[in-house]
Computed example of a mutant assay.
Amino acid sequence: MLKVPVKGNWNLYQADPRLLYISLGILALTALFLFVRALRMFRVMAIVALIWSAIMAAAVWFKVHNYFGSKFFDKVLSKTIHFQWGWIVLLVAVILLATSVKKERLEVK
Rank of each mutant, 00 (worst) to 15 (best):
M1L: 09
M1W: 02
M1F: 00
V4G: 01
V6I: 15
K7S: 07
K7D: 02
G8Y: 15
G8W: 13
G8C: 14
N9W: 03
W10S: 14
W10I: 10
W10H: 07
W10T: 07
L12M: 06
L12C: 01
L12V: 09
Y13K: 12
Y13P: 00
Y13V: 04
Q14A: 13
Q14T: 13
A15F: 02
A15V: 14
D16G: 11
D16C: 08
R18G: 04
R18N: 04
R18L: 09
L19D: 01
L20S: 00
L20W: 02
Y21N: 05
I22K: 01
G25I: 02
L27I: 12
A28D: 15
T30L: 12
A31D: 05
F33T: 11
F35H: 12
R37A: 05
R37T: 08
R37V: 05
R37C: 01
A38V: 01
L39G: 14
R40V: 05
R40G: 01
R40T: 08
M41W: 06
M41K: 04
F42G: 03
F42H: 09
F42Y: 15
R43A: 08
R43G: 06
R43I: 04
V44C: 01
V44P: 00
M45H: 02
M45V: 05
A46Q: 04
V48L: 11
V48C: 13
V48N: 13
A49L: 08
A49S: 01
I51P: 07
W52Q: 07
W52C: 06
S53H: 10
S53E: 07
S53N: 08
A54F: 12
I55M: 10
M56V: 00
A59I: 00
V60R: 00
V60G: 00
V60Q: 01
V60E: 06
F62L: 09
F62R: 05
V64C: 02
V64Q: 06
Y67L: 13
F68P: 02
F68G: 03
F68L: 01
K71W: 15
K71P: 13
F72D: 13
F72E: 15
F73V: 01
F73H: 08
D74L: 12
K75W: 15
V76P: 00
V76I: 11
V76G: 04
L77Q: 08
L77H: 10
L77D: 06
S78E: 15
S78C: 15
K79P: 04
I81T: 00
H82S: 06
H82I: 00
H82L: 06
F83A: 05
F83S: 02
Q84A: 15
W85G: 14
G86A: 06
G86Y: 07
G86C: 00
W87K: 02
W87I: 03
I88E: 10
I88Q: 13
V89T: 10
V92D: 08
I95T: 15
L96S: 03
L96E: 01
L97Q: 10
A98L: 07
V101N: 15
K102R: 14
K102P: 11
K103D: 03
E104A: 05
R105W: 13
R105V: 13
L106A: 11
E107Y: 09
E107I: 14
E107K: 10
E107Q: 12
V108H: 06
V108C: 05
V108G: 04
V108D: 08
V108K: 09
K109A: 08
K109C: 07
